[in-house]
Write a protein that binds this DNA or RNA. Structure first.
Lengths: 145, 145
DNA sequence: ATTTGTGCAAATCGTTTGCATCTGA
DNA sequence: TCAGATGCAAACGATTTGCACAAAT
């Protein structure tokens, strides 16, 4: 059951190092949240999700701090914001270029395996602007059978 | 200064007819809002936007009614919801298959001309699901020059 | 010691809803 | 007439913020 090095759950020290390298002071709760986030590969979760998970694992952290931390991690490039609409914001631990399925019925975000979508002609941005990034959201519904 | 028939501003009667055909009772405020929405081609606006515009044109309508009306029009297929994230929901008067530029700096949504983006390989949905629709959002930033 | 983070509760923002009143067919 | 629409204000859910306290360098 072994996995690539990158996917192995990092320990406390590795997490601290990761945060320090991103210019983020490794506090108790930030390390704990990073632990939950990066324990296993690619996760998509909302602030609420993460907070619930922290509570379940008896990591005392307030919802406000979870929000602050997620946004901080995003600014540092450790997380990526997923563009689905709807009331909640999702964060993705996979920061590489890839896209998403979104199941509205159960508010679930799923990675589209890299390479299974290819943009043939990328649209030319209007003058004065440049492309920051491209997000593809494939909205799914439960098959009608 | 003429334009294709479809893009010519519809009059009150045409608007009423349009609503009736969609099974929506053409009330004073719905017709007025439809007038603002469909006066000229392709618009992207939020409830707030439309409400402000109505106020400016002395069309008395409450924000709640604007929300109700937009959602109604969307359900009827007269409008399409645009999937950008951020707090606001945008509605697009162009209901055909197309994609969007989104300028985060000024919260602006712009149509990507049809055909300038082509998906080469469409991702296979996970079993039990089918593709409802595909949304491409090209996020723009102001060119750094 | 100083700077930075944390928790709480209150504030904010977009959106929806309950309900009494009005209005279009 | 009378089902359905409107407006208002209150309710809501997600997110942010102000401030006193606590922890990290």
């Amino acid at each position: 059951m072994d996995s690539p090095a990158a996917a192995r759950a990092p320990n406390r020290n590795q997490l601290s190092g990761m945060l320090r390298q991103s210019g983020i002071r490794p506090t108790r709760q930030r390390v704990a949240l990073a632990g939950l986030l990066f324990a296993r590969g690619n996760r998509h979760l909302s602030a609420e999700n993460l907070h619930a998970e922290a509570m379940a694992k008896r990591v005392p952290v307030s919802l406000a701090t979870v929000y602050n931390t997620l946004n901080q991690f995003r600014r540092a490039g450790l997380l990526r914001e997923v563009v689905v609409d709807g009331p909640k914001t999702y964060f993705d631990t996979n920061t590489t270029e890839h896209h998403h399925f979104y199941v509205e019925d159960d508010q679930q975000v799923i990675d589209v395996p890299a390479g299974s979508i290819t943009m043939a002609g990328l649209a030319e941005p209007p003058p004065g602007y440049e492309v920051a990034r491209v997000e593809v959201v494939v909205r799914l519904r439960r098959a009608a059978r």
